[in-house]
């Protein structure tokens, strides 16, 4: 997945996340959530997941609880507390929302791991070249400015002016001092950068955008395969082979062979990155063992 062409990775994540958000079918949600969880574990390891869960679980609970409290649609009343009617439909809807949120967050954590900044820059550079350069320059200069700020603070400490201590007002003032000198510094050094850019022909007409990525045959094959699965899912939804409606009462599509096929297609699509990476790892290991 990492060395897949950025356009494919990006469209893949976009599609899966879109389906997860828009189509809140319990089966597809479960598929999406479990696949996202597995892939996130694969990419980030169990440890980092603990942190994610720390945020995820309370958020899920909140979504699951708040929805039935404020949403009174639905015909099946479970409990009545005073004037408050809690319905089965809104409770289930809340749970689905919670699952959806969790899945989306997990997918995004995978997305971040796969779609590094340069891939993103490349993709959008294709569309607007100047934007790609601006992003790249920003990524260059933010760490630079931060390190210069650190250096200034360090230097001031070294001559006995501790900018992190003293009254709040003192600190605000010294923070302002640093900020103002940073602006001067940035402008001063920016002149050099501008010279370097102009000297290398920046501003000439017809700028092109170079990237490291090539669309190879493997990319095309995998793209075709996942596109096929995606079309199956879309057709299934469009033909209402799988469908869900929560209000006024829950109506789920009846179980059928075509529906099962579509679930399978979605499952395959969601597990696609994991299968791909797993397959490549296996291949790598076996090729190594042969050496």
């Amino acid at each position: 997945m990492r060395n897949l062409h950025p356009a494919i990775s990006f469209s893949y994540f976009a599609f899966v996340i879109l389906i997860t958000v828009v189509f809140m079918h319990p089966v597809t949600l479960c598929i999406s959530l479990i696949s996202a969880l597995l892939y996130a574990i694969y990419l980030n390891g169990i440890k980092s997941l603990r942190l994610t869960l720390l945020v995820l679980v309370p958020m899920m609970l909140l979504a699951a609880i708040i929805n039935p409290l404020f949403n009174h649609l639905g015909n099946t009343v479970l409990i009545t507390v005073g004037s408050l009617q809690i319905t089965l439909e809104s409770t289930l809807y809340g749970l689905s929302t919670a699952g959806m949120l969790a899945a989306v967050i997990l997918w995004f954590s995978c997305y971040n791991k796969i779609m590094t900044s340069d891939k993103f820059t490349y993709l959008f550079g294709k569309i607007i070249p100047s934007v790609s350069l601006i992003i790249s320059m920003t990524l260059r200069f933010i760490p630079r400015y931060l390190s210069q700020m650190k250096k200034i603070t360090y230097a001031q400490q070294a001559i006995g002016r501790d900018l992190n201590s003293g009254h709040l007002i003192d600190r605000i003032r010294s923070g302002g001092d640093i900020l103002s000198i940073m602006v001067t510094w940035a402008l001063e050094n920016g002149v050099d950068t501008a010279d370097s850019m102009r000297s290398r022909g920046y501003g000439l007409k017809g700028r092109s955008s170079y990237s490291l990525y090539k669309l190879d045959s493997r990319d095309k094959l995998l793209a075709a395969f996942s596109l096929y699965l995606a079309i199956m899912v879309i057709v299934g939804i469009a033909l209402r082979l799988i469908s869900i409606s929560y209000f006024p009462w829950i109506t789920l599509n009846p179980f059928s062979i075509p529906a099962l096929l579509i679930y399978l297609a979605f499952l395959l699509l969601c597990l696609f990155p994991l299968l791909l990476d797993g397959f490549e790892e296996l291949k790598w290991r076996s090729s190594r063992s042969r050496i």
């Binding site: 350069l133 022909g201 700028r207």
Partner: peptide
């Protein structure tokens, strides 16, 4: 430090040629 414009080594190398509009 000041002369480097982009965040990646490969991009910096390509910068001048991009300006000239060379193809990939």
């Amino acid at each position: 430090e000041n002369q480097i414009v982009t965040d990646k080594v490969w991009h910096e190398l390509a910068f001048g040629l991009e300006s000239l509009g060379c193809d990939t």
